[in-house]
């Protein structure tokens, strides 16, 4: 890490925290003026700053509005860096997008900027682009590969759908981001041709000799003959209602909203856990959610009761009962 760049981190955070676009842009413009390469500014300043923003939002230190403002200013900064960085002539083209259901478009923009520095022409699709839209644009694009980023594991089925449409037309897919689990353990389940730890590794893989020009359709998921996870996700509304009914009535309206939102996420996470055939995801979520509930003075037993209500309604879904029991043990 360069000292010049990382020293500016606090000041940069202060700028984006106040939505001070001019301040943040001037800071970065000065760095680039001093001859710091654009990719270094991205990896040593912008990405750590975003990580800090995420933490401040998670701990409740920053409001949603402030976090969005900071991301917006950071987006401007990334564009400035991308425009200021020379692009070597490109040998290959790639489409960069978020997994359907994941909204961290800034991650795609940063990856695209870093890939361009390495001579890969990157085209960014806006977050919210679905598998259908990807299927329509991909056959006519000049893309040799697709890169799919996923920050939250609940978007993995969306990622899977996108991988399927890309590979169906023979375009290989590279994936990355924390949503794919530690060391990309779920990348294979999603059907990707490869998983990259970071932008640097992504560029290396794409330029490497082992990266396919044309790929075969994504392998089928053997444990999902009838797409059980879809079944669970479709039952979201009745499941959440049953879960809420099973829990002790909550007086505080704010806590009730948290609970309801939490149960919605719980159902989605359970569905993804079944999709991945890996209960770790759901157990980890349960642990995290139980902590949140403790802060709100809701007893853990309440969540256990909600899980029992889920299990009663999901008796027909193979695997759901076992996963819920596993998570119930944590409570």
């Amino acid at each position: 890490m360069t000292h010049v760049v990382s020293d500016e981190l606090d000041l940069f955070l202060a700028h984006i925290g106040r939505t001070d676009e001019v301040g943040a842009l001037t800071l970065v413009r000065n760095l680039l003026g001093k001859g710091v390469p654009g990719d270094e500014v991205l990896t040593d300043l912008v990405i750590p700053a975003l990580r800090a923003v995420g933490e401040r939002w998670a701990t409740g230190e920053w409001t949603v509005a402030r976090e969005h403002g900071a991301s917006h200013v950071t987006g401007r900064v990334v564009h400035l860096i991308a425009d200021a960085t020379p692009r070597p002539s490109s040998a290959s083209r790639i489409v960069v997008c978020c997994a359907q259901g994941d909204w961290h478009g800034l991650a795609s923009t940063i990856l695209a900027a870093l890939l361009r520095v390495r001579g890969i022409e990157a085209m960014v699709l806006p977050p919210g682009t679905g598998a259908g839209e990807l299927a329509r644009m991909l056959p006519d694009s000049e893309a040799d590969s697709v890169a799919i980023g996923c920050m939250v594991s609940t978007a993995l089925p969306g990622a899977r759908a996108m991988v399927e449409v890309a590979r169906r037309v023979g375009v290989p897919v590279l994936v990355g981001g924390p949503g794919f689990g530690p060391d990309g353990r779920w990348a294979g389940m999603v059907g990707a041709n490869g998983w990259a730890r970071d932008a640097r590794q992504a560029a290396d893989m794409l330029a490497g000799p082992d990266w396919p020009t044309i790929t075969t359709p994504a392998p089928r998921l053997r444990h999902l003959p009838d797409a059980t996870h879809d079944g669970v996700a479709l039952l979201r509304t009745p499941l959440v209602a049953a879960g809420m009914a099973a829990m002790v009535p909550i007086e505080d309206e704010r806590s009730e909203t948290t609970l309801r939102d939490g149960l919605v996420t719980a159902v989605d996470t359970l569905a993804v856990s079944l999709f991945l055939d890996d209960h770790v995801l759901f157990v980890d979520f349960t642990r995290w959610f139980a902590d949140v509930l403790t802060h709100r003075h809701v007893p853990r037993q309440a969540l256990a009761a909600a899980y029992r209500a889920f299990a009663a309604r999901l008796a027909h879904v193979p695997g759901a009962g076992a996963t819920l029991r596993m998570a119930g043990a944590v409570l």
Binding site: A58, V64, D102, W103, M151, V152, S153, T154, A155, G179, R254, T257, T258, D261, G262, T265, D268, T269, L281, D284, F285, W288, F289
Partner: peptide
């Protein structure tokens, strides 16, 4: 409105 993170 009370926000909740999108995922675990």
């Amino acid at each position: 409105p009370d926000e909740h993170p999108d995922g675990a």
